[in-house]
Design a protein around this nucleic acid. Structure first.
Lengths: 199, 199, 199, 199
DNA sequence: GATGAATGAGCATTCATTCAT
DNA sequence: CATGAATGAATGCTCATTCAT
């Protein structure tokens, strides 16, 4: 049984390894331009053997998105952000957290922007739904802030969209932001976003 | 010679036609998922004949980026924006113009985000350079505004990056913004961006 | 237009050529054991080019069955056999004709027995339906002969099945019948079948 | 030593099990479409372990044919049919027995018709030889009946071939004979065959 | 310039078989 | 004997590009 448990862990571990290495390749060369042979080479797992750990190339892409969306969706569920009274504190903490997560999952976010259309329809819908729910989450905070008069915005839905989009700045345009450290980025991002909603 | 000139015009015209039709296909299905046969079918130009007008599939992609970057670069050059005295007016007019252009070239902008990595390195550098020059253009305006005390921002380079990025919101996330007309988007975008730099 | 007509003929001709060569290979080695590369080699058509003439490997198999079933189904429709008064003459002529056809399409018949299960469901149903209609055709003759008292059989449906089956003897067991010419086979077959229904 | 004997029995038992389960799969899906993994799953024997009991996939097919041909060949050897005086009784008993056997080994007979060509040449020759000996066995009976004037046939070798072939009707065309029980089939078959040789 | 057949390298995936444990 | 991961050759099929007409 120890054997078995170890073996199962190995399987998960190797899956993770494949998915991460593949993510790096998809990020560098694009999904279509990356071949299963590339992935076999990168993971040093025999091409045929690869298929003992993943189901298909598409499956790998789904796993990548899942790896990024899972903690994201979880965070929205579990975080006690909803209990915070002051919308400004609530927003700032949320933005900080999400920016942090996006910066950590930079590659996955970029992939999401680039390759969502390759996903099987069901999975794609789930991805877009999660994305939409993030927007809704921020829309709620903005609305409450508007009602309390602490935020000055015209259209909370538009602002929420913009706000969520802004947070992926570093993921999509890091090539022009190399002069900043991740910490600096985070600080600038939070300030910039907060400034745009405060009166 | 009349013959020749007409013939050359035809060549340009057909090139344009190919590039435009291909752009639509790349946008809809992705670059890798679009075949040269698809393009031949869409343009009603025989597959073999296609190669009398373009050099390769990659070449088409370069042309698409060129088509979008050309007027962009030209606008930066030619516009008399630089002569405007008040940085606020200068910024607002620029933002309005660029948002308008991005909305018009929505598909191309999305393609750029998705498929830049397929471009040959030389071309890619040129694209990124133009992109960088747009950021610099706005950075200049922001700096002048800061010096005059009409803008309240911390880091003009970061803000310029964010600002340029924000302007592509509609191109990249139109799927979640269907409730707005293009005009509404433009208005909201300009307001939102101006609000974030004014004190 | 002459060009075009010639070209279309060529396409049909080559299709036929591919299907016939493939039939030979399927017959010799079996469907699954024959590769598209084998077929390319046998037809001297480049592997990729092959797919300009046929849709898939399965498609070839369908064409083979079609080539055999088409004249078969046509014969049942068009032949004036139905107008013959005497059931004995009617049966004898029919058996002679069908035996002849089966001997001509020996390979296709053998393939049908071997590889029907590989066909796409729709096509398979059509094949089995035609097969069933041949049995029905002979069942009708046998019934009429029974009513007139010229045939002595117990169960016309069973006899029709047996009779149709017997006719494929040469196709399925030619390896043990090499001592006979096709003409001899035909004669023996007709005699044997007629003998088994006459009183 | 007791150990060893038991162990050897187990080996034979498991071999049998593998071969029978595989036969069922080959029959249902075809030889080429059945994978060793399918067989491992069906037998609940680990894929690698399978190879401790059989040599190869082809080897399994040989065993199946052997399992069917063995009792067949044995029957011909051992049965006291040869001692029966009246060729009509001799033929009727033989036909009844063989029809019974073929109905019992329906699947194997069908497999034989479908997949003989996959067998290694040596094995295939043996299969065809046994098949031939069955024909010879019946040819002998027919000849004696002809000499005694109790059978009325033209060519005993051809008739023997036809007769043996007829007996596999149910194995090869059961899909069109579902309305009959096995017992009915046997009766109809014997009657039909006897009728075709009696004057 | 126009045509569409031809080329051949390349792709994701499968699977019988082997082998270290 | 048992396990299941590993191997690597094949397979059906695609597609950018070329070329003879």
């Amino acid at each position: 049984m120890a054997q078995r448990r170890r073996s199962q862990l190995d399987v998960k571990e190797r899956q993770m390894n494949i998915v991460k290495k593949a993510a790096r390749l998809f990020f560098k060369k694009g999904y279509a331009q990356t071949t299963m042979r590339d992935i076999a080479r990168a993971t040093k797992i025999n091409l045929g053997n690869l298929y003992n750990y993943i189901e298909s190339k598409e499956d790998i892409l789904c796993h990548i998105f899942y790896m990024y969306h899972e903690p994201f969706a979880e965070w929205i569920e579990k975080e006690k952000i909803m209990e915070i009274e002051d919308p400004r504190v609530q927003l700032e903490k949320s933005v900080e957290k999400v920016v942090e997560m996006i910066n950590n999952y930079r590659k996955e976010v970029l992939l999401m922007y680039r390759e969502t259309r390759v996903l099987p329809p069901k999975f794609m819908k789930r991805v877009l739904a999660t994305e939409g729910s993030v927007v809704s989450f921020f829309e709620g905070i903005l609305k409450r802030g508007m009602d309390q008069g602490v935020f000055k915005i015209k259209d909370p839905f538009f602002s929420a969209n913009m706000l969520v989009f802004q947070m992926s700045l570093y993921a999509l345009r890091s090539w022009n932001l190399k002069r900043y450290s991740q910490e600096e980025i985070k600080k600038l991002m939070v300030e910039s976003i907060m400034a745009s909603v405060l009166p």
